[in-house]
Computed example of a mutant assay.
Amino acid sequence: MKKLAPLLLAAPLAAMLSGCISFGGKPPKVPFMTIRAAEQVKPGDVQTPASGSTVTVLFPVVPHELATTRVPVHQGGNAVAYVKDAQWVEAPPRLFARLLGDTISARTGRPVLSYRQSQVDPGATLSGELRSFGVDADTNEAVVIYDALLVQGDDATKFQKRRFEARAPLAEVKPELVAEALNKAANQVAVEVSDWVGK
């Protein structure tokens, strides 16, 4: 009986504390959005690069309107608003760089490195500016515009610069539709960039 006493006292105490302790907040009313690469390296694939064949993908520079987790909407040329109740799970530069890296690695077979990993074997460096990653309300399209800069090896004077643009139709400006359309446009840009980077 003495052994049962602590257990009997612990049950009401646990019940009282359960009302005070929360293991995680309430889920948001509107889910966060993300984008994913349509082509990815298969699990278990081992990449052993030749010297200089790696690609380092840096986070792109963005204008102020994209330095947030919200989705900009352009209308009439100069007006910018944001999609109501739409929010990315993380900032667009990170989402886009990850999608680029996954696509390049899957399509070219070249290992894609982060900035820190690149100290081992810098290879080519892909940087640039993500100029648009939002909605054009005048044409009802999701728009992704990326000005890419590719430097081959250690010689920064040997580079190529190219603009990539993709648009995806948008039936209505709603978070889930916007995320789907931007995912499609971002993947199109990533495929074109990976083919440009080459094998």
Rank of each mutant, 00 (worst) to 15 (best):
I104D: 01
L58T: 04
Q160K: 12
A148T: 06
L99I: 03
T54Q: 05
L8K: 05
R94C: 00
R116Y: 11
F23V: 05
S105P: 00
I104P: 02
L95H: 01
A190W: 06
S18W: 15
F159I: 01
V41Y: 08
P28A: 10
A179F: 08
A38K: 12
V80F: 13
P28R: 11
P111I: 12
P93K: 07
P49Y: 04
G198W: 03
E39A: 15
W196I: 02
A137I: 11
P43V: 15
G134L: 10
V71M: 08
I104Y: 06
K2G: 09
G198A: 08
V61L: 14
D155C: 03
D154W: 02
A15N: 10
L130H: 09
E180C: 07
E176F: 09
G128N: 07
P60N: 15
W196A: 03
V71C: 02
G25F: 01
I35P: 01
Q119W: 12
K84M: 11
L170V: 12
V73R: 03
H74C: 03
Q160T: 05
G128M: 04
D195T: 09
R36W: 05
P12D: 10
A38R: 09
V144A: 01
T125C: 00
E176W: 06
E39V: 13
H64P: 12
P31K: 10
Y82L: 14
P92G: 04
V178L: 10
V57G: 00
M16V: 15
G198T: 06
P169Q: 07
V83K: 06
V57S: 00
A124L: 00
A81Y: 08
E129R: 15
D147V: 04
E165F: 05
V61D: 15
P31F: 06
D147C: 05
S127A: 13
K3N: 10
A168G: 13
K29R: 08
V73G: 09
A11F: 14
G77R: 11
V71Q: 04
G52Y: 01
A50D: 13
A190L: 08
D195H: 12
T54F: 00
P28L: 05
A171S: 15
R94W: 08
S118I: 08
V61N: 14
L58W: 06
V46A: 14
P60T: 14
A166G: 12
S105Y: 04
V151M: 02
P63G: 15
K184L: 12
Q117A: 15
Q47K: 13
E192Y: 07
R107H: 06
V30E: 10
L66R: 05
A5Y: 04
